[in-house]
């Protein structure tokens, strides 16, 4: 295999992109990270620390570049690890650099674009790549960076993409990558896991107790599974790593931005949309999608009401509990 075929290219030097790059570099995998923010590139070059993942040393073997064409030349396998609101612009840029031979997987746990699309749909429309996949699951950037155990799921219609992802990213025992063909299911599960992490942040913040917390988790899986199935995904996917596994790891993690947002909401802080996390955006997008598909999602609707300031945390919690009890 050529060096290019063995190299992982990463778009975005955020927490996840950097964490993944560090985990890969530590086990000897060639990694090139593209960031269009010179200050980030300079900071990593100077301090070997990423501003978004400050406690982790970035090995010198991680190459940081500022030219997307250079990334396309260096790696055939590319991971898109940017915030969802930046995805359309970064993909348009990437599309001009790559060709039909590239494999593009994204690690975005949200829906994106003005129409709340799954990110793989945007990848297909904006770039020449057709061999596309989605990476999701309970792999926290901090754990990746620190060499702790982490797991991910890769979903693609192409077995080749699953195979390549496992060949390049599976680093047992620390990082394990599982395969799936349910792209739609994994993308929705990954997005909604962020939303429910916010919801659990609220629940923990107002100290609902272990019983209601368990009810919230199981009902979240149930309503999200309904949506996934209606949208063409598999009903089981939400119960897997990308969905439930993700929520269980992230809800409770003090570093998780979605969980932190939930705690802040529980303190009745007013959160401006500019401060919304991926999970918050996913909640709003999920509610719009559910309305279009005619799927009832009481938990998600309650969260969206809190986020948009239409309901207080306690009202929303009571309402969601009532709705859940009535329905199930």
């Amino acid at each position: 295999m050529s060096v290019r075929g063995d190299t992982v290219g990463i778009v975005g030097a955020g927490a996840f992109g950097t964490g993944l790059a560090v985990a890969l570099a530590r086990s000897g995998r060639p990694v090139t990270v593209y960031t269009r923010t010179p200050s980030v590139a300079n900071a990593i070059a100077a301090t070997r620390r990423c501003p978004r993942l400050p406690d982790v040393d970035v090995p010198s073997s991680v190459k940081i570049i500022g030219d997307v064409k250079e990334l396309a030349a260096a790696a055939r396998y590319i991971v898109l690890a940017v915030a969802s609101q930046d995805a359309p612009a970064r993909l348009a840029e990437l599309g001009g650099a790559i060709d039909g031979g590239h494999v593009v997987v994204h690690a975005i746990g949200a829906l994106a674009g003005p129409d709340d699309e799954r990110v793989s749909v945007i990848v297909e429309r904006a770039t020449p790549a057709l061999r596309i996949g989605v990476l999701a699951g309970p792999a926290l950037p901090r754990d990746l960076g620190a060499g702790q155990f982490a797991s991910m799921v890769i979903a693609s219609g192409f077995d080749e993409v699953v195979r390549e992802t496992r060949r390049l990213l599976n680093l047992p025992p620390y990082l394990r990558v599982y395969g799936s063909r349910d792209v739609t299911g994994v993308e929705l599960a990954s997005a909604l896991a962020g939303a429910y992490t916010v919801a659990l942040g609220i629940a923990d913040g107002i100290k609902v107790g272990a019983g209601p917390r368990a009810v919230a988790i199981t009902r979240a899986v149930a309503e999200a599974s309904r949506l996934a199935e209606t949208a063409g995904g598999q009903i089981r996917t939400m119960s897997g790593l990308a969905g439930l596994g993700n929520v269980l790891v992230r809800a409770g993690d003090p570093d998780d931005p979605d969980y932190q947002l939930g705690l802040a909401l529980a303190r009745e802080e007013r959160i401006e949309p500019a401060r919304f996390t991926e999970g918050a955006r996913a909640a709003l997008a999920g509610v719009r999608l559910a309305a279009r598909k005619g799927v009832r999602m009481p938990l998600l609707a309650g969260l969206a009401a809190v986020l948009s300031g239409k309901a207080s945390v306690r009202d929303a919690a009571r309402l969601a509990a009532d709705n859940v009890a009535e329905e199930e």
């Binding site: 295999m1 075929g5 060709d99 031979g101």
Partner: peptide, 26 residues
Amino acid sequence: DRAGRRVDPRTYLTGADGEHGEDPQR
């Protein structure tokens, strides 16, 4: 491609090894 950029159709058959191998599932 879907965005209107010219693309060499051969590249869709290129594998990680740079060859144009057979892959019925692909």
